[in-house]
C-alpha cells in the first residue's frame, strides 16, 4: 500500500464554494496536494472554511468550482462514481455519527458487507481485529448509547478503517469530547499516523498537530494563508493573521 510514499493521492485545484450566488465565499480558490502516507493538519479560526474544505474532499459539500483528483479519479466530474470513490475515503465526524440503532459490530460490518461483498464472517473477523487493536473488543455487541464519547469516537475511527480506505478525513474529531477523553482518541490517531495512514485532520489540538503532522495548513477567509512543516509553522510564522491566531490559541 505504501509503495509510493511520494505519490500524490489527492490533488485539489482552485477549489471554490460559494453560497447565495457568490455573496458568501466559504472556499475561495484552494489548491493543494496531499501525498500518500502524509498527515496534514488544517487549522484556522472558526468560519474560515477549514471544515468546508475537508467536507469538499469527499463531496459531502459539492464545490462551486475547481477540481479534486483522487487517485486518478476526477471527483468533481459528474461522470465519476462518487460512491465508489468514497469507499476509499474514510471520514470521522465531530459528533461521531455512529448508527444508534445498530450494535458496534453492525456499525462496522454494514458497509463492508453491502459494498465490498464481504461475507458476514469475513467482515466480523476484520471488525474484531480492529476492535481488539483499539481495546474495545468487549463492546462489540454494545449499542452506541452505552459507550463513552471517547469510545464512540474510537469506534467511528475503526468503522472508517473497516473499509480499508486510502485516506481518512477527520472533521474536528476531539471537539465534542470531554477533556479527559481527548487523549485516548489522539493516541489512536497517532498510532494510525505511525502506521502510514494518509490523514487529513481539521483540529484545534495544536499540540497534536505539532507532534504528529507532516504538514500544517492555515486556512482563513476561504484561502490557504500559510502552510509548512510544524517546525517552521510554530516557531517562525510569517503571516500576520497566523501570528495573531497562534498568539490566541497557544
Amino acid at each position: 500500500m505504501n509503495a509510493n510514499k511520494n505519490e500524490i493521492l489527492i490533488s485539489v485545484r482552485d477549489l471554490k464554494k460559494y453560497y447565495k450566488g457568490d455573496k458568501i465565499k466559504a472556499l475561495d480558490g484552494i489548491s493543494n496536494d496531499i501525498r500518500r502516507g502524509e498527515v496534514v493538519c488544517i487549522i484556522g479560526p472558526s468560519g474560515s472554511g477549514k471544515s468546508t474544505f475537508l467536507r469538499s474532499l469527499n463531496l459531502l459539500e459539492v464545490p462551486t468550482g475547481g477540481t479534486i483528483n483522487f487517485a486518478g479519479q476526477i471527483l468533481t466530474d459528474r461522470k465519476t462514481d462518487i460512491n465508489l470513490c468514497r469507499q476509499k475515503m474514510g471520514m470521522v465526524f465531530q459528533h461521531f455519527n455512529l448508527f444508534p440503532h445498530m450494535t458496534v459490530m453492525r456499525n462496522m460490518t454494514l458497509a463492508p458487507m453491502k459494498l465490498l461483498g464481504k461475507t458476514q464472517e469475513e467482515a466480523e473477523s476484520r471488525a474484531m481485529q480492529l476492535l481488539t487493536r483499539v481495546g474495545l473488543a468487549d463492546r462489540a455487541q454494545s449499542y452506541p448509547s452505552q459507550l463513552s464519547g471517547g469510545q464512540k469516537q474510537r469506534i467511528a475511527i475503526v468503522r472508517a478503517m473497516a473499509m480499508d480506505p486510502d485516506v481518512i478525513l477527520f472533521d474536528e474529531p476531539t471537539s465534542a469530547l470531554d477533556p479527559e477523553m481527548v487523549g485516548e482518541v489522539l493516541d489512536l490517531m497517532k498510532a494510525l499516523a505511525e502506521d502510514g495512514m494518509t490523514m487529513v485532520i481539521v483540529t484545534h489540538e495544536m499540540g497534536f498537530a505539532r507532534e504528529v503532522a507532516d504538514r500544517i495548513i492555515f486556512v482563513d477567509g476561504g484561502k490557504i494563508v500559510e502552510e509548512g512543516t510544524p517546525e517552521e509553522f510554530f516557531t517562525n510564522p510569517k503571516n500576520p493573521r497566523l501570528k495573531d491566531f497562534l498568539s490566541k490559541v497557544l
Binding site: N58, L60, N83, L84, C85, R86, Q87, M89, G90, M91, F93, H95, N97, L98, F99, P100, H101, L110, A111, K114, L115, R159, A160, M163, L169
Partner: peptide, 27 residues
C-alpha cells in the same frame, strides 16, 4: 433524523437509497 447520519452513511460509500434503507428509515 440528524443529517450526520446520512453523511456518515454516504461517507462510507453507501448510495442515497442504501443510506435511506439501512440507516435513516429504520430510525
Amino acid at each position: 433524523i440528524d443529517p450526520g447520519q446520512t453523511e456518515a452513511g454516504r461517507s462510507l460509500g453507501l448510495n442515497y437509497v442504501q443510506t435511506m434503507a439501512y440507516i435513516v428509515l429504520p430510525q
